[in-house]
Structure formats: C-alpha cells, structure tokens
Design a protein around this nucleic acid. Sequence first.
DNA 1: TGGACATATATCTGTTCGGGTATACCTAGC
DNA 2: GCTAGGTATACCCGAACAGATATATGTCCA
Lengths: 109, 109
Amino acid sequence: MADVFQILADPSRRHLLEALREGERSVGDLVDRTHMSQPSVSKQLRILRDSGVVSLRPAGRHHLYSIRGRLLREASEWLAYYEHFWQEGLSRMDEALQRGSPPRPGRKG
Amino acid sequence: MADVFQILADPSRRHLLEALREGERSVGDLVDRTHMSQPSVSKQLRILRDSGVVSLRPAGRHHLYSIRGRLLREASEWLAYYEHFWQEGLSRMDEALQRGSPPRPGRKG
DNA sequence: TGGACATATATCTGTTCGGGTATACCTAGC
DNA sequence: GCTAGGTATACCCGAACAGATATATGTCCA
C-alpha cells in the first residue's frame, strides 16, 4: 500500500483529510469530527502516515496530525493529463485531432 | 462501487485510462497495450463504464472505448482543495494563519 | 507510584476485489 | 446456418482490507 489513489480510495481516509484541511488536528478531534471509532481513526492515520500523506507532531499526550502535500500533488498531476477531456470547447473529436488520431481497428461511420 | 477514487485505486484501471488518453481504443488494442488478459480488460472496462469514467461506442464486432472527463474532473476538483499544501512559499504555519488557526487541543511550546 | 487521559496495536471477522479459466454472446462473411 | 473473430460474463479462488473489540503503550499529574 504505497499508492496515492489507493490511499484516497477509502472514504474514511478522505474524511480525515477533509478534517485536516483546516489545519493540524489531534486524534481525539478527528474522532469527534468523523464519527469514527478511535481505533479506526488511529488505524487510518497510520496508513496515511506510512504512505506520506500526513505527518505527525507529538505534543504531550496528544498526537497532532497535518497534511503533507507531496503525494496529493502527484495524484493531482496524474489527473492533470486528462484535463482535455473535460475542458469546454473540446469535443471527443477535437481531442483526437489535437493529439493525432490513433489507428482505429474498426470504423463504421 | 461508484467512487472515482475507488475506481482509480486499481493500477490496471489506471493503465487502461492511460492507454485511452491517446483516444478511442478497441478492447483488443487495450489488451495488447496493457498486457492484461482479455477477460480482465473487459472486466475493468465494465467497471469503468458503469462508473461513468469511460464510454462505449460499438463498431461492428469491435467495442470502442473512450474517456469521459466528468468523474475525473470531480477527483481533480477534490484534490484542488489541497493545493495550498504543496504550493511553494506556504509553510504549514502559513496555511494555518491563512485559514484561521483551529483550536489546539494540546499545546506545549 | 498509581491512576486517568490519549493514542496505538493485536486479533478476529465478514466482505470486497482482482485475476484466471472456461464459456457464452454477438457480429461479419461466406 | 456455419465458422471465425471480438468481446462479455460466470464461477472460483486467494489476498487485501476496513471495522469492531479488547488490550497495550505512553504521558501527565498528584
């Protein structure tokens, strides 16, 4: 499990990231905000941390988590390659022409 | 399974999408380009289609698949909320200040 | 040192998921 | 209709995974 998209695949992990968007949060805070059990939160935070999506700063008996952008950025960059497909003014035909039509195995109209 | 990120979580599906970036492709083409078995390709294409990430255009006995941007765009937009976290010139402190520091459960320094 | 608070891990369990093989379906051409 | 090409589905299997419960670890405070 080192794949960003695999990390983002789980809704509970995305909820954690959404809560962390506002800034550094303790585990207890995240439990309150996500309505997940504490062990679940800790478990998912562990996965997020191991994969490098969040970082941990111990503060007394609290563990403060925050977002590290690097991996999220990688995901964003991967998706950026597909921007043509949703940008206005570009039909599917336009796209094909723009990047050179690939060989078509079958054609019919 | 209707979640974009869950769709993107599987590497084989991402490979299919990468092959489709060049334009419309038949199943056979995708089999060649991805080194997956034909049933696997069909299976993943089915998932991609059901979720709305690709669309199908029958052409004789060939099935031509192409990318539909809408869902990929949703994923991209979700990620866009996190741009602050990887943009230069913004430390973690800056982010906190920028969006108003959240309550800190524990503090120590 | 003992106890409460905060977080992490261990273990179990039901489910989901992807790949493989075999097979069914559909279309074109004869 | 028969055959071949192209694609989809059925079924089985093993692995991965998320949630829950119980328990361990660590820290503060008296």
